[in-house]
Write a protein that binds this DNA or RNA. Structure first.
Lengths: 123, 123, 123, 123
DNA sequence: GTGGTCTAGACCACA
DNA sequence: GTGGTCTAGACCACT
């Protein structure tokens, strides 16, 4: 169960969750995804919001709908493969932008990451 | 002069601009900030929006207002310094958490940052 | 319906009204509050002012907002209870300090309160 | 030296300070008050604000100006005597109103005051 | 001059 | 429907 961050749209957070599962291989190309209603129950969200999740994922080419059957992950591996890198790229850019806004330079940021204790709770 | 990103609220972008100037030392503790009206002209925004910028910055403890006199940067440098580091810490943790969720390890993350082109549009 | 005192900001008076209802149990933790627009109509104020009421109450931790759903009273009763007592404590201390500055002693203050007519306009 | 509460007007706070001194007998009927300029230095306030203090006190009949000589406390004892009671009354009413807004009843308020530890820092 | 409050009404994203 | 943001412009108290 996700704890939603009230700052960004819920549908985006659910999309991210699904993309994450795709990136990690927990969901595979061709897999059937839960119905919108199931998704709504799964994440305790409004059915409209669940619908929007699939609508946006479909627009991104990540899944497609079969009438009467449900929603499925696209089989085209070219579509799925880059998801991990794309998400990582987004995270990196957002992170760098934020840190730069705070006045940090490239070397400083890398130093901070290097020196960070990665072993307690985080890694 | 900022070119506003239509995706995030103007007042947040102006706040970030000011925080950036603080982090970079262009504005110093105790300094008088432009009046709301001046700020409005400076960034071509509505006085109310300018007001909101200072209100939120005040709520963060970054500045304070004196009636009839203006808005000033908090004098206690102790207030400014930790803000930067606290924010950085939050960004770092959020970033690391996200990347780890995607399956990246410490060295991979640092490598990605090292190899990232920092100079086009981002740096 | 409140009759607004022109001396203090309307938004504060409406906030106080809501806090009063909370303290008296007329509104309970978890309850949905009227939408900003409804609140605006309810008190014949501008929607922006109504918005501000909820924004300030949220900043105090008394309520929280769900986008598209509405504004709700904080569920943790622990959040509500102490607010009342904290406020009371502040009032008491400020009051005692002021009275002592005027040269009153404990017994005198209590006597004054005991003898005060509480039933006309005040109680 | 007063630490000003940024919530209420400075001129009111200075007025209160002077009225308090009157109530406590630190300043007596007929006494010469510091000049506006001295008052401004004394409290580190703007000379205009200091002027306003005397203007308002004069309007209340507490002091009067002699051209070229300065500002003096009125000699009419009837004017000075009730100051202490008036201020106390204001404090009491404000206190009771606030507490009642929080849902406290007369007996509860008196109980709180009775049971309050008056001996550490407050009394 | 400064900031604080308020109204009126607009547009947007979200559920 | 909800709240979030923004503009335009007003009036006020305070310094």
């Amino acid at each position: 169960m996700i704890k939603f961050d009230s700052k960004s749209p819920i549908y985006l957070q659910v999309m991210n969750e699904i993309k994450k599962q795709l990136a990690l291989g927990e969901i595979k190309p061709g897999d059937k995804l839960p119905s919108s209603r199931e998704l709504a129950v799964l994440y305790s969200i409004n059915p409209n919001t669940a619908s929007r999740v699939y609508k946006e994922l479909e627009a991104m080419g990540i899944c497609f709908k079969k009438r009467g059957l449900g929603t499925f992950v696209t089989k085209e591996i070219n579509m799925i493969k880059p998801i991990k890198q794309d998400m990582a790229r987004d995270y990196v850019i957002a992170f760098i932008t934020s840190m730069r806004d705070l006045g940090y330079k490239k070397e400083e940021i890398i130093d901070i990451l290097k020196n960070k204790e990665w072993d307690n709770g985080i890694d």
